[in-house]
Design a protein around this nucleic acid. Structure first.
Lengths: 202, 202
DNA sequence: CGATGAACTGACGGGTCAGTCAGTATGGTG
DNA sequence: CACCATACTGACTGACCCGTCAGTTCATCG
């Protein structure tokens, strides 16, 4: 059903287009059902193609899902980088990064990450993918802090440490909020993060 | 194989003993293979019993695994509470709590938690279990901070906020370290946590 | 000593699903 | 046009595994 995905990809060879279609379909299904409950047949059905064709482009299910996860995460990361490159004061840039890190309400990609970390415990291809992307993500935050320190706006003792602490704090809060919706809600998350940010940048 | 588990349980009815045997077997298998890869047959084989018997005591696999997860987590939590009750200065108690929160090297229960959060996205019984235990865990940390504030040793603005921030920070760091062993290692984790603790207690 | 029921076995049904394969459509090329 | 490679189909297989059930063992008690 629905192949709303003739955007953005230029004039690549047809095979590549199909590959990307399948990746995006896999992302859609994973987002809806979760990684563990995603079947090859579901991805095929989502595009109205046969399961054989999925396996024509991807040898195994594991390879497909890891590639799809990477595809989704790289897209989001690229979007964030573009936002950051448009410029602004260090403070504004930091806010942009933090806000796009967040489990904003209805922002389902945290569910994918939470499952991704779990799958990474078993699947080597996922482990590698999740690790690279986690680090790339923190890198963006670290740069924002470093720039702020360089310009004198922030006063972190060690921007890289601060970046890791903030990133891990946000990840932990995302789990509390997304995985089981406990006492931590969206408003509280923002407050806790905001306080931590202030403490880190002095 | 191996049923090294005739400890600790007093003279409960035989059924209850068997239930607990099965729960501990399930914990052992989950710890080794991960939650997602745990089969009812594996649990049975680990005890040298039939799969039928497992289903005699637990209606569904989901119920078994959620109960086993709760069993393991409650045991650890009880152990921590005993440690805390032995007393000490607020600073010592805080260190005990923080150190037992940690993904200490070889401490495999973080793997279970990481998978638990992911499973909680799909399974209602896991969601409930993981949520309750997460909160109980933070509660212990919050008490340690509150006591320290009361005695004047610490100066948190809001001990509960600090507890949540520290707990989430540690969870996030555990993921980085356990799930994909990226740039964050055990030594660095301890340093990052220690700095955050100092910042929180002033 | 029967009898009753709880604890337990192990074979099996029935459903699911990843990956295969023989065969079909399509579009480009000589 | 004939040829051929690439893209694609969909039925199928082989494996896996949860949960069931008919039947067995065993302890307890009237």
């Amino acid at each position: 059903m629905v192949q709303s995905v003739e955007e953005s990809q230029g004039h690549k060879p047809a095979v590549e287009k199909r590959r990307i279609q399948i990746l995006e379909a896999a992302c859609a299904v994973m987002g809806k059902q979760g990684i563990a409950a995603t079947r090859v047949g579901d991805v095929a059905k989502h595009l109205g193609i046969s399961t054989g064709l999925v396996h024509y482009h991807f040898d195994t299910k594991d390879e497909l899902l890891a590639a799809a996860f990477r595809h989704a995460a790289e897209k989001e990361l690229a979007a964030l980088r573009i936002l950051v490159e448009t410029g602004g004061t260090p403070r504004e840039l930091l806010d942009v990064v933090i806000n796009n890190f967040y489990p904003a309400s209805g922002f389902s990609s945290w569910r994918l990450w939470i499952e991704g970390w779990a799958v990474a415990l078993q699947s080597e291809s996922f482990r590698q993918t999740v690790m690279e992307l986690d680090e790339a993500w923190v890198e963006v935050l670290a740069e924002a802090l470093t720039d702020g320190v360089a310009s004198g706006d922030f006063s972190c003792v060690n921007p890289r440490d601060s970046a890791w602490r903030l990133a891990c704090l946000i990840e932990g809060l995302a789990i509390q909020q997304v995985a089981h919706g406990g006492v931590i809600n969206d408003v509280e998350t923002r407050r806790l993060v905001a306080d931590a940010v202030e403490a880190e940048i002095g």
